[in-house]
Simulated scan of single mutants.
Amino acid sequence: MTRGKRPDIRLTITGKLGKMGCHRGHHVGETFDYDTERGRICPMALHCAFPYIDILRYGGTLPGQPEGTAEFCCSDADVAMVFKAEVIKEEE
């Protein structure tokens, strides 16, 4: 589903770096709809996610990443959760 003219974005936690658990309680495998579930996502992760989401929403690509996706980490030094942002195609 597309809200207005911006494509929908799904965030998925794909991994973690570090020995501690996420301070917000996130775990590998969680998925979020960026527009409707933003309040469930750690603010530190959202701060890191925004530039990538902006790039994807406006048709940009990131070097070395498949079109329509961006992988990034949150900024927590104790445990960096790895996120994948992806544009959701209308047929999904």
Results as ranks from 00 to 15, higher is better:
residue 64 G to Q: 07
residue 43 P to T: 06
residue 61 T to Y: 00
residue 91 E to W: 03
residue 50 F to Q: 09
residue 77 A to W: 05
residue 7 P to M: 10
residue 71 E to V: 04
residue 41 I to C: 09
residue 27 H to Y: 07
residue 53 I to T: 10
residue 42 C to I: 04
residue 79 V to L: 09
residue 90 E to F: 00
residue 12 T to P: 09
residue 53 I to R: 09
residue 78 D to A: 01
residue 50 F to S: 08
residue 85 A to R: 10
residue 13 I to D: 06
residue 12 T to Q: 15
residue 52 Y to K: 07
residue 46 L to A: 05
residue 58 Y to L: 03
residue 65 Q to Y: 08
residue 15 G to I: 14
residue 29 G to M: 11
residue 69 T to D: 02
residue 58 Y to W: 11
residue 33 D to P: 02
residue 65 Q to C: 06
residue 66 P to K: 08
residue 42 C to G: 04
residue 24 R to F: 12
residue 82 V to E: 12
residue 43 P to F: 15
residue 61 T to V: 11
residue 82 V to N: 08
residue 5 K to L: 15
residue 36 T to S: 13
residue 76 D to E: 08
residue 16 K to P: 04
residue 63 P to H: 11
residue 31 T to D: 12
residue 27 H to L: 06
residue 83 F to K: 07
residue 20 M to E: 15
residue 19 K to M: 11
residue 65 Q to H: 10
residue 17 L to V: 14
residue 12 T to L: 15
residue 75 S to L: 05
residue 28 V to H: 05
residue 34 Y to A: 14
residue 85 A to S: 08
residue 62 L to I: 14
residue 86 E to I: 01
residue 74 C to E: 08
residue 59 G to F: 01
residue 30 E to K: 04
residue 60 G to W: 05
residue 39 G to Y: 07
residue 88 I to W: 07
residue 62 L to T: 09
residue 22 C to M: 02
residue 9 I to V: 10
residue 78 D to S: 04
residue 36 T to C: 06
residue 25 G to V: 01
residue 86 E to Y: 09
residue 42 C to K: 01
residue 28 V to C: 08
residue 39 G to V: 06
residue 57 R to T: 00
residue 78 D to I: 00
residue 34 Y to C: 00
residue 54 D to K: 13
residue 89 K to E: 15
residue 73 C to F: 05
residue 4 G to A: 02
residue 48 C to P: 03
residue 85 A to Y: 08
residue 34 Y to G: 01
residue 16 K to W: 06
residue 52 Y to Q: 10
residue 34 Y to F: 12
residue 11 L to S: 10
residue 47 H to G: 07
residue 92 E to K: 03
residue 5 K to T: 14
residue 59 G to E: 00
residue 74 C to W: 00
residue 75 S to H: 03
residue 52 Y to G: 10
residue 37 E to T: 03
residue 63 P to A: 13
residue 45 A to S: 08
residue 76 D to V: 00
residue 88 I to S: 04
residue 72 F to T: 04
residue 22 C to I: 03
residue 61 T to H: 02
residue 8 D to Q: 14
residue 61 T to I: 05
residue 19 K to T: 12
residue 45 A to F: 02
residue 70 A to H: 02
residue 68 G to Q: 06
residue 79 V to G: 04
residue 66 P to I: 07
residue 2 T to F: 08
residue 3 R to K: 11
residue 6 R to P: 05
residue 91 E to V: 03
residue 91 E to D: 06
